[in-house]
């Protein structure tokens, strides 16, 4: 019985360590993919040409790069944590790019209404 206990405890520790290691790897992989795709989405939406969006996009890229370096040095927990920042910055860059598009569309629509009112000499609504 004691012999069995002696074997089970180190085995449990080993399995637990493997499990934690695997889950860290998985989180790292998922966060890297998520940040990379958010950065790509922001770029496709033209974030590089929108001042505030490009700022957050740049931060996200630097954080992703930093996380890769940490992961390469086996600092996976810190890398995952840094990827949270990269993901948040990239997602903000995506939203800011959308906002820029919407603002321009709204501006155009309002200008068209004003022009239509002016052309037909109507008072504003």
């Amino acid at each position: 019985m004691r012999f069995a206990q002696r074997k089970i405890i180190p085995m449990s520790v080993l399995v637990g360590s493997i499990f934690i290691g695997c889950s860290t790897d998985l989180a790292l992989k998922q966060n890297t993919e998520s940040s990379t795709s958010a950065i790509r989405a922001a770029e496709e939406l033209g974030a590089t040409k929108i001042p505030n969006a490009s700022y957050y996009l740049q931060l996200a890229k630097e954080e992703l790069e930093g996380a890769r370096e940490l992961a390469a040095n086996s600092k996976k927990v810190q890398a995952t944590s840094l990827l949270w920042r990269a993901n948040a910055d990239a997602e903000l860059a995506v939203l800011l790019s959308h906002e820029d598009v919407e603002k321009n569309e709204a501006k155009d629509a309002v200008n068209k209404v004003r022009q239509l009112q002016k052309d037909n000499q109507l008072s504003g609504h």
Partner: peptide, 15 residues
């Protein structure tokens, strides 16, 4: 901003 676009559409229709 989207609400502004919708309002502009309604204004255009009214005009």
């Amino acid at each position: 901003e989207r609400a502004k676009v919708s309002q502009a559409g309604r204004d255009t229709q009214a005009i």
